[in-house]
Computed example of a mutant assay.
Amino acid sequence: MPLLLIDFPSFNPIAVAIGPFAIRWYALAYIGGIVIGWLYARSLLKNERLWGGPAPMSLVQIDDFILWVTLGIILGGRTGYVLFYNLPFFISNPAAIFKLWEGGMSFHGGFLGCVVAVMWFAYRNGISILSLGDITTAVAPIGLLLGRIANFINGELWGRATDASLPWAMIFPHDPSHLPRHPSQLYEAGMEGILLFTALAVMVRFGALKRPGMILGAFILLYGLTRIAGEHFREPDEQLGFLWGGLTMGMLLSIPMLIVGGILIVWAVRRGSPKPTEAIR
């Protein structure tokens, strides 16, 4: 057992409780990610230098879009978890699908929900699908960071067992094996949150928003890479385990992202910056 084994901090998953009313850290992570992301998106839209002229959408439109993307995240995330991670259980217990407070959300499902929200909102409002996708994915790592921290606070989605060579290994209180494990939630917070946000922010500052689809493609590609890397340290879901060739469901769902992200980046580079009056849909 590691000599410097770290005890898992005793976190209360409930952040605020007033009588029977309780707000969990996980819910606050979603709320905080959406609110902070919305404020960051507004700041990007106000900076015409980043777009090479007026932004392709108004502040009022991005304000309206928040409700759409929130519904996309929640409905898509839950649907993805049901379909990708625990379908037999939910077929036998359909009422459990609506018990969101018990947990169970899928990033890949939430991402597809966001794609639907972006495409539908952009079409209805006559704005660029790719540019709306760029602004949405530029702020997405904020929510990913807070969500992974909430996973850590809840003591869920822990990492694979490790040996004495890892001094920061942890024993998670809900783990029946009581083995020292990687705190993979923190690894993912660092890669999917901090690293991804930094990479996209640098690209934004160097003019990537002038090429619609560039940030969207970079997010999809880089998230796929960081998720696959993180899955090497994360314990697979108990009901799924390892799949083909030792791959996990998270890896399999991320592989298509590498292809799609790469295609979008190449397409954005070849297309170049649009004319001010050109709409991209």
Score class of each variant (00 low, 15 high):
residue 210 K to S: 09
residue 56 P to W: 11
residue 148 R to W: 00
residue 275 K to D: 15
residue 49 R to P: 00
residue 194 I to T: 06
residue 271 R to I: 08
residue 38 W to N: 15
residue 164 A to P: 05
residue 123 Y to N: 02
residue 138 A to H: 07
residue 185 Q to E: 06
residue 73 I to A: 03
residue 181 R to Y: 13
residue 141 P to D: 14
residue 91 I to K: 09
residue 164 A to L: 11
residue 85 Y to K: 14
residue 90 F to G: 09
residue 150 A to P: 02
residue 160 R to Q: 14
residue 52 G to Y: 08
residue 117 A to L: 07
residue 214 M to K: 10
residue 228 I to Y: 01
residue 107 F to D: 00
residue 272 G to Y: 02
residue 111 F to E: 00
residue 198 T to A: 09
residue 111 F to M: 13
residue 24 R to Q: 12
residue 81 Y to L: 09
residue 143 G to A: 03
residue 7 D to F: 10
residue 131 S to T: 04
residue 224 G to D: 01
residue 10 S to N: 13
residue 47 N to P: 02
residue 233 F to C: 11
residue 213 G to T: 04
residue 42 R to N: 00
residue 31 I to S: 12
residue 175 D to C: 03
residue 203 M to L: 11
residue 228 I to G: 01
residue 83 L to N: 06
residue 17 A to D: 13
residue 53 G to D: 00
residue 146 L to R: 06
residue 258 L to N: 02
residue 138 A to C: 02
residue 231 E to Y: 05
residue 70 T to M: 15
residue 182 H to Q: 06
residue 85 Y to G: 10
residue 249 M to S: 14
residue 59 L to D: 12
residue 221 L to P: 06
residue 58 S to L: 03
residue 115 V to H: 05
residue 53 G to Y: 02
residue 160 R to G: 03
residue 41 A to E: 11
residue 161 A to S: 14
residue 41 A to T: 07
residue 99 K to F: 01
residue 180 P to N: 04
residue 115 V to N: 05
residue 9 P to D: 03
residue 174 H to Q: 15
residue 261 G to Y: 00
residue 161 A to F: 05
residue 132 L to C: 04
residue 72 G to I: 01
residue 273 S to F: 07
residue 200 L to A: 14
residue 186 L to W: 07
residue 200 L to S: 03
residue 41 A to C: 05
residue 267 W to Y: 06
residue 128 S to E: 10
residue 274 P to V: 13
residue 192 E to R: 08
residue 184 S to K: 03
residue 58 S to K: 02
residue 70 T to W: 10
residue 184 S to A: 15
residue 34 I to E: 00
residue 117 A to I: 06
residue 238 E to H: 12
residue 242 F to R: 07
residue 11 F to C: 05
residue 3 L to E: 15
residue 52 G to M: 03
residue 184 S to V: 14
residue 125 N to E: 07
residue 177 S to V: 02
residue 113 G to H: 03
residue 246 G to I: 00
residue 91 I to Q: 12
residue 98 F to T: 07
residue 19 G to W: 05
residue 152 F to D: 00
residue 168 W to Y: 13
residue 215 I to N: 09
residue 210 K to C: 06
residue 276 P to E: 09
residue 138 A to L: 04
residue 19 G to E: 11
residue 222 L to M: 00
residue 103 G to E: 01
residue 213 G to F: 05
residue 121 F to V: 08
residue 31 I to M: 14
residue 223 Y to R: 12
residue 136 T to P: 08
residue 160 R to N: 14
residue 118 V to Y: 00
residue 245 G to V: 11
residue 16 V to W: 08
residue 142 I to K: 06
residue 21 F to G: 07
